[in-house]
């Protein structure tokens, strides 16, 4: 069996930056490919930024739990938040067609995450969002 790490941050960007640095340190020691590390960072940054910016209906601090499971060739990232229900798998597709002056980047973060992850699953339970992201470049989707 591999290793499992659990982190807890508040919904603010300074804590997110520290979390990313800490997770990168762990991931680097595990000898994953540059490509997998790149994908991991896209998933972390995009999904957590989304939760911090748009996830809550109040201005209070909230806990976000992040679990990282690492096993030989695969990584599973689970993000748990108590914001309002939001399933990124049902988000609107981003604008990929407009010319430069009309191009908007809304939805690009979720789109990039879906493209770079090998599998995403979402569940709403106990009034929380559970987003599970599988990164496994050499393993067929589980």
């Amino acid at each position: 069996m591999g290793n499992c790490y659990t982190f807890k941050i508040k919904n603010n960007f300074p804590e997110l930056e520290l979390l990313c640095a800490e997770i990168n340190e762990i991931a680097r020691e595990s000898n994953f490919s540059e490509q997998l590390l790149f994908s991991l960072n896209v998933c972390l940054e995009e999904m957590l930024t989304n939760i911090i910016k748009y996830g809550y209906d109040d201005n209070r601090p909230h806990d976000i739990e992040i679990r990282l499971e690492i096993d030989n060739e695969i990584m599973i990232l689970t993000i748990i938040d108590d914001g309002h229900a939001f399933n990124p798998l049902e988000a609107d597709a981003p604008d990929m067609k407009s010319d430069l002056q009309h191009r908007q980047l809304g939805g690009i973060g979720i789109f990039l995450t879906c493209k770079m992850a090998d599998k995403l699953s979402y569940e709403r339970k106990d009034n929380k969002n559970f987003l599970k992201i599988l990164l496994a470049p050499h393993v067929a989707a589980l």
Binding site: M96, L100, I108, L112, M116
Partner: peptide, 16 residues
């Protein structure tokens, strides 16, 4: 390459 792939995936290389 990895950065270029991300830009392409996001559709940015069509306008930039």
């Amino acid at each position: 390459p990895l950065v270029e792939t991300a830009l392409e995936t996001a559709g940015l290389t069509m306008v930039l």
